[in-house]
């Protein structure tokens, strides 16, 4: 309805810098024009996106809780929990698919950055779920961010796994040396 060319404050329903950056990094070495064209294409994939990637969930947050919050933006068509690819247990992310693009945008605006299960969650527009994407891509099966995290996060399995292993090793070696 608005005739405005641009908004006087930023919009919260844009794809994140992560999405744009991911595509940029990938084609760092390609020819400029091609790069530009593909970047446009990758953003246009989101023009009718009805799916959201949801991050920073606690490992203990259930589908029902996610449903309860996200249904406030519209009926949910599908909810895919992110799983540890070895244990098949929740690993702190999910995909929420709505019936309409508008519902997905509204979710970015109204739910992204608010709390679920007492954690600030992150939402990002996503071109759509594909089989395989529900699994963590980290070395030990979970999300990459949970490999090297140096902070203790009780909702996400304590310390990062790789970091924790290294810490354990160092502690053991130190003990053995004494």
């Amino acid at each position: 309805m608005s005739l405005l060319a641009f908004n006087t404050v930023d919009r919260l329903d844009r794809p994140s810098a992560y999405y744009a950056g991911k595509n940029k990094r990938r084609r760092y070495n390609e020819r400029d024009e091609e790069r530009e064209r593909e970047q446009e294409e990758s953003t246009s994939k989101l023009n009718n996106a009805t799916t959201l990637y949801v991050g920073n969930l606690s490992f203990y947050t259930t589908e029902e809780q996610i449903h309860e919050l996200f249904a406030k933006c519209g009926e949910i068509k599908r909810l895919v929990m992110g799983l540890d690819r070895f244990n098949k247990t929740p690993c702190g992310f999910c995909f929420v698919e709505y019936y309409t693009h508008q519902d997905a945008l509204d979710c970015l605006k109204y739910v992204g950055g608010t709390k679920l299960d007492e954690r600030i969650i992150r939402t990002d527009l996503d071109p759509g779920f594909e089989e395989g994407r529900q699994y963590g891509r980290g070395k030990s099966g979970g999300q990459v961010r949970d490999e090297y995290r140096e902070e203790y996060d009780p909702g996400r399995g304590g310390y990062g796994r790789a970091y924790d292993e290294q810490r354990q090793r160092e502690e053991d070696e130190y003990g053995a040396g004494r």
Partner: peptide, 11 residues
Amino acid sequence: HKLVYYHSVLT
């Protein structure tokens, strides 16, 4: 707008 928008403003 959806009710949750007004929730989020108060938050």
